[in-house]
Design a protein around this nucleic acid. Structure first.
Lengths: 359, 359
DNA sequence: GAAATGCGTGGGAGCGCTCCCACAGGAATG
DNA sequence: CATTCCTGTGGGAGCGCTCCCACGCATTTC
């Protein structure tokens, strides 16, 4: 069953059927209705391969998941971004293909992308995270292949969507330090991610502005590593009394460590998280943190990509998405004036009353 | 740049180039080497659309995520299955497309699948979870479209891969009840999933064989709901002293509830989980549970699908994957003899020493 | 009333492959 | 020496669309 068959049954030409399918306005109502009836009756769907061969468009986009993210894959952030991308695809009538770097061969993904790209299997790709090292991205850049990055790019001009990690981390740290803390530490994500560097940047700036000594430690988005580092920090000399974890997963590790050492939160230690991906969980734990719109990030990335595919000459767009400072109890029991002070530049603020509870 | 161009540059015909690309043995070494050199030099990749138009094969498969699973999407099980599917695709040189039911329109996925299917955009699909209601599956069944289900099917003959949920739940319950418990309760997943029903089945059978009264409650794989149900069960009259949660997420909810009510685990309450997706977390919590090979499930599903696409006439295959009973401390402090007794039919057993700790 | 404009339609060419058949030329066979 | 076979190769047809040009006919314009 193909266009020609439908055409014959509807008493029109192949071209007219094609026009009906592609919503070309230059079709009479009479013909359109007849063709649509035949299509519906036979449940006809045009052959995708033939369409893309002729039109040089596949209506398929790829979501590239770097090896580092595949490690984070079980982290809550990632699946939600995927879901957001799917939302976007559904809206734009696109299909989403998953491309993942293999853990063993770091170049496999590049080869894969190149094959997809040159084989015209994809109209464009969304890069799930922005890497500080852009050698992989350069390939896309040079080949004029439409792509969008989730996370700002630092070394190349590109279209991307991001949250203001630096500013968010600044506000988070400011809140964390608002309860007379003496010494701050940060558990950061890997330095290969731009977002990690931005958060570190914001943390350092806020600590410095507050005149409080601060150290940064790479915990690699890993709960256990965060736990171990926190234990060694908290049981060592000159222990910090404020810890900023760059993800909720790591914040949980810190809380675990504090419990084990019998350190009281928030009295003797303030803890700040980042992500708020599962509000019910973080709320139960009472972790103050930054909420980022993961699903929206995915959705917007697809939107931007779709626009870019339609008009590749259009100048690059950059989209900042808002975050929210979520004030709970892990940094100290708040009062309203303080909360109001923190409100500047923050989208929304949520207050959970109750003790620091553990899940 | 296409086959013809490569052919001209290599001094052969389009057919020969095609043979080289498709590893056809009927090519002389001389010609093969020359063609491969030209292909490599120009970094040529054949056009996917043209290939699939001519060959009626796309080398793309779909992963269908039912609406109910999209809710579970942030649950650790799901991303790992996806990763397993990607592994399989990488091995078989396939591409993976993600299809998700929309939360608002339950029929959207069926329409999507149908479009993919009739539009020949996909060679086959993996259904991420087996639903008790197979109306959606029937569509695939009737159209001879290759598909594989993760989770056994009850009403139709199909190719699937699954763990023995019933048996695993039986063993889990047996272990849970091995410390002189009087009354058991189960927090189950939604009854729309075959796996939920199987686990309930195994639980009921084990409790009945042990002569212990048992109740089942639908907690919908939701931590908070599990928490609430557990609170109401444990604070009510004739409270259970053994709770089997059909997922670790729900088990965490139960532990939360017990802590809140000041009920001691495992002394006054035994808790059993299911999944062991993040061993570091469950180990820290000391939750005994069943480990299921999520990644392997995805990988095998793709393997089976690939075989099925190659030979659609082949009779349906069913694959059981092994699970492991992980004995920790949430059901009671074990001794070796007991652990050995439980060993029958269980693949592996892991013992975590230590107190019940909270993450 | 002739020319210009518009809309709706049909059909050819072509997208870049695969598959099949034809055929050349050397090796094996009678 | 003629016939069969086998191996490697080339080219035509066709996959099912889109895109473009051409054409018929009704309507508008001078």
């Amino acid at each position: 069953m193909n266009l020609e068959d439908i055409a014959k049954l509807a008493g029109v030409s192949r071209s007219t059927v094609s026009r009906v399918i592609n919503n070309d306005p230059r079709v009479s109502d009479r013909a359109r209705i007849r063709v649509q009836a035949v299509i519906a009756e036979h449940n006809f769907h045009p052959n995708a391969a033939a369409r893309s061969l002729a039109s040089r468009r596949t209506r398929v986009i790829g979501l590239v998941i770097p090896a580092i993210a595949s490690k984070i894959f079980s982290d809550p952030w990632f699946p939600i971004v995927i879901q957001g991308c799917m939302d976007g695809c559904q809206e734009q009538d696109l299909s989403l293909m998953l491309l993942m770097e293999s853990e063993t061969d770091p170049h496999a993904a590049n080869r894969l992308i190149e094959r997809m790209l040159r084989g015209r299997q994809l109209d464009g790709v969304v890069l799930a995270t922005s890497l500080a090292d852009t050698t992989g991205t350069r390939l896309l850049q040079e080949s004029d292949f439409p792509f969008v990055v989730i996370g700002r790019t630092t070394t190349i001009d590109a279209t991307w969507v991001d949250i203001d990690n630096r500013h968010a981390a600044y506000l988070a740290t400011q809140h964390l330090l608002s309860h007379n803390r003496r010494k701050a530490a940060m558990l950061a994500g890997p330095a290969t991610l731009v977002s990690s560097l931005d958060r570190i940047d914001g943390f350092r700036a806020a600590a410095s502005d507050a005149g409080i000594p601060a150290t940064v430690h790479d915990a690699d988005y890993d709960q256990r590593r965060a736990h171990d580092i926190a234990v060694s920090l908290l049981s060592g000399p000159d222990a910090p009394d404020a810890i900023f974890a760059a993800s909720d997963t790591m914040a949980v590790g810190v809380i675990q460590a504090a419990r084990r050492l019998g350190i009281e939160i928030p009295r003797s230690l303030g803890v700040m998280g980042f992500d708020d991906i599962r509000p019910d969980r973080t709320a139960a734990l009472g972790i103050s943190n930054i909420r980022q719109p993961a699903r929206e990030e995915g959705r917007r990335a697809v939107d931007l990509l779709h626009a870019r595919i339609a008009d590749p000459a259009h100048p690059h767009q950059q989209v900042w998405l808002p975050t929210e400072l979520i004030v709970r109890t892990s940094c100290g029991y708040h009062n309203n004036t303080e909360a109001e002070r923190l409100d500047a530049g923050v989208e929304r603020k949520e207050v959970a009353i109750g003790n620091l509870d553990v899940d």
